[in-house]
Amino acid sequence: MQCNPAKQSSWNMLSLFTNSGMLFLEISLVALILQGNNATGSGALTRTFVISGIIVAGDMLLKAIYVFGFGVPLFINDHGKGNRVKWGLWLVHKLLLSAVYGFILFMHHSKWRERLPARPAFYKYICAMFLLSVVSSFACVLVENGAGLSFWLFDFVAVCYHSLYLPLLYVTFLADFFQEEDMRPENVYYAEMKDAGFFDADWD
């Protein structure tokens, strides 16, 4: 919904903290799982939160400067007007996320696969986030070029992201764990190793 012009500052602040919180969750999840077997104890959580905090703090500061310093309406949709600075920033943001997720997928299908965690659910999550980032980047390009339905596509992706991200985490990482027949740890570990290909005859 378009916010009231008299409440733009409040809307910008709320949107800034919401987007930063979601980005922090994204980065923390990826950073924690990429540590693999080393992700144990408080040390792993500390490293994860430090990395995520530095990246998100820089991103948040940059957005705050553009929103409150230069008056760029990053979080306010002015349909019908293509602000090139605004959509250029969003395009760079989405492309960076696409590059990170795409690089992880590339490594998963390359000779460096052994350096990544053997968790099939993690790669399903990466595929979903990569697809979401690519579609969002495409929507930004369409908006910059004034294409029809471009605002609708960007808004649709944004709604899907904010409303379905937490359900995606549950379905991907937690749903199987809470099923009654999979509550025994040995069954969970066996299922993950089987999905990762540990019991394939040609696995090396």
Rank of each mutant, 00 (worst) to 15 (best):
residue 1 M to V: 09
residue 2 Q to L: 10
residue 4 N to T: 08
residue 5 P to Y: 01
residue 5 P to C: 03
residue 8 Q to W: 08
residue 9 S to V: 09
residue 9 S to M: 12
residue 9 S to C: 13
residue 10 S to H: 07
residue 11 W to S: 04
residue 12 N to W: 00
residue 15 S to D: 03
residue 19 N to P: 10
residue 20 S to A: 14
residue 20 S to H: 05
residue 22 M to E: 07
residue 23 L to R: 06
residue 23 L to G: 05
residue 26 E to G: 02
residue 28 S to P: 01
residue 36 G to W: 01
residue 37 N to D: 15
residue 38 N to A: 11
residue 38 N to E: 15
residue 39 A to C: 04
residue 40 T to N: 08
residue 43 G to R: 13
residue 46 T to A: 07
residue 48 T to L: 01
residue 50 V to M: 07
residue 56 V to P: 03
residue 58 G to Q: 02
residue 58 G to W: 02
residue 58 G to P: 00
residue 61 L to A: 14
residue 62 L to W: 08
residue 63 K to M: 08
residue 64 A to G: 05
residue 66 Y to I: 11
residue 67 V to K: 05
residue 70 F to L: 15
residue 71 G to P: 04
residue 72 V to Y: 00
residue 72 V to F: 02
residue 75 F to W: 07
residue 75 F to T: 07
residue 76 I to A: 01
residue 78 D to A: 15
residue 80 G to Y: 01
residue 82 G to I: 10
residue 82 G to H: 09
residue 83 N to E: 08
residue 84 R to W: 09
residue 85 V to N: 02
residue 85 V to E: 04
residue 85 V to D: 01
residue 85 V to R: 03
residue 90 W to L: 10
residue 90 W to E: 06
residue 91 L to M: 06
residue 92 V to G: 04
residue 93 H to F: 11
residue 94 K to M: 13
residue 97 L to P: 07
residue 99 A to R: 03
residue 99 A to T: 07
residue 105 L to R: 01
residue 106 F to V: 09
residue 106 F to Y: 11
residue 108 H to R: 10
residue 108 H to Y: 14
residue 109 H to T: 14
residue 111 K to D: 12
residue 111 K to T: 15
residue 112 W to F: 14
residue 112 W to H: 10
residue 113 R to N: 14
residue 118 A to T: 02
residue 119 R to S: 13
residue 119 R to H: 11
residue 119 R to E: 09
residue 121 A to P: 02
residue 123 Y to Q: 02
residue 128 A to H: 06
residue 128 A to R: 09
residue 128 A to P: 07
residue 129 M to L: 11
residue 140 C to M: 04
residue 143 V to D: 02
residue 145 N to T: 10
residue 147 A to V: 08
residue 148 G to Y: 10
residue 149 L to F: 14
residue 149 L to Y: 09
residue 151 F to A: 12
residue 152 W to L: 15
residue 152 W to Q: 12
residue 153 L to V: 13
residue 153 L to Q: 05
residue 153 L to K: 05
residue 155 D to E: 15
residue 156 F to P: 06
residue 156 F to W: 12
residue 158 A to L: 08
residue 160 C to W: 07
residue 161 Y to C: 12
residue 164 L to Y: 09
residue 165 Y to P: 02
residue 167 P to H: 05
residue 167 P to E: 03
residue 170 Y to C: 03
residue 170 Y to T: 00
residue 172 T to D: 00
residue 174 L to Q: 05
residue 174 L to A: 07
residue 175 A to K: 08
residue 176 D to K: 06
residue 180 E to P: 11
residue 181 E to H: 12
residue 181 E to G: 11
residue 183 M to H: 13
residue 184 R to Q: 14
residue 186 E to Q: 12
residue 187 N to I: 08
residue 188 V to D: 10
residue 196 A to R: 00
residue 198 F to E: 06
residue 199 F to S: 04
residue 200 D to Q: 15
residue 202 D to W: 09
residue 203 W to C: 13
